[in-house]
Amino acid sequence: MNKKIHLQDLGNKDYKETWDYQEVLFKKIVDIKLEKRTNPELVTPNYFLFVEHPHVYTLGKSGDMSNLLLSEKQLEAKGATFYKINRGGDITYHGPGQIVGYPIVDLENFFTDIHKYLRFLEEVIILTLAEYNITGTRSEGETGVWLDVGTPFARKICAMGVRASRWVTMHGFALNVNANLGYFDNIIPCGIKGKAVTSMHVELGAAVDEEEVKRKIISHFAILFEANFKTSEMLRQFE
């Protein structure tokens, strides 16, 4: 099993371009897995992309269009784009000040359990938030990381939605660090009515060093998944 993960920070990158590139990496891993049937000595690679997107709303394959509260003209006026995509979950927002992480990994290199994978992703964020004295937790039946679950003040700080096929993953998580939360007013986040969203900035009352948060995320991911990260040069053609 290959537990090495190629890490790349793409900076600020268009959502569709990044999605297309995820698909390239995803297909590469799946193709190697298929070839392994006749050549079992082949090793599948793993990738982890950090990215920040310009304002965009994305709707998962099980999502409801009515959860987008803007018309096409209103989207354009706000400088935002919209995509229906092939991950699980409903609608969410991505934008500046948000750390988005896309693990594109072969789970057969780690463990073959999608439920465990999602819980581990949540735990990575929960442990990261704890380093800032923010108590993140899970909300039963609602993927992602929340604060003050079970109270009238429950609010979501990190959304998650993944796709997996042949034990290969794509898409991932979006942690609100310094994000402009006003953009969430234009959707029913994750299709869940009556619950708010928040950010590390709001909770702490001050801007947060996003590079430091990324380092903490990678550290916790490496421990939980027993993985080794390597800063990758192989994705430079995408920059």
Rank of each mutant, 00 (worst) to 15 (best):
A80L: 06
N109T: 09
I114T: 15
V124G: 02
E108C: 13
F50T: 12
G97P: 02
T58R: 10
N46K: 12
I91N: 05
T58Y: 10
N109V: 10
R87I: 04
N109E: 04
E76A: 15
H55W: 12
L68G: 09
N86P: 00
Y93T: 05
E72N: 12
G97S: 09
V105Y: 08
Y102E: 02
P96W: 04
H94S: 01
A80T: 08
L49V: 12
S71V: 07
E131A: 08
Y47M: 09
G60D: 09
Y102N: 04
V43R: 09
L69A: 05
L70M: 10
F48T: 06
K116L: 15
T128L: 05
G60C: 12
L129F: 06
I114M: 14
L121C: 15
A80N: 05
Y102R: 10
H53V: 12
R119F: 03
L127Y: 00
D90H: 08
V43D: 07
V124F: 07
I91M: 07
L118C: 13
I114N: 03
F48P: 02
E72F: 00
F120S: 15
L129T: 04
T112M: 09
Q74P: 01
A130L: 11
P54F: 13
R87A: 05
P54Y: 14
P96I: 09
F82H: 03
T128W: 03
G63K: 02
Y132D: 01
N133M: 00
D113F: 11
D64V: 12
Q98W: 04
Q98K: 08
Y93M: 03
G60L: 12
S66R: 15
D64Y: 11
L129A: 11
I126E: 01
E72Y: 00
H94P: 01
S71N: 06
K78M: 05
N46I: 14
Y117Q: 06
T44F: 11
Q74W: 06
D64N: 15
Y117M: 08
D64G: 00
T92R: 00
R87Q: 03
T58E: 07
T128R: 04
N109D: 07
I91D: 01
E52I: 14
L129G: 04
G95I: 04
H115Q: 08
D64T: 09
Y117F: 15
V56Y: 09
D106N: 14
H94F: 03
E122G: 08
T112I: 10
F120G: 02
V100I: 14
E72M: 04
S66P: 01
K116R: 15
E108H: 07
L69I: 03
L129Q: 03
P103G: 11
E76H: 13
K84D: 00
G79P: 06
S62H: 12
K116C: 03
E72K: 15
V124K: 05
L75M: 14
I91C: 08
S62E: 10
I114S: 10
M65S: 11
H115E: 02
M65H: 13
N109H: 07
V51E: 05
N86M: 06
G79E: 02
I104F: 04
L69W: 01
Q98H: 08
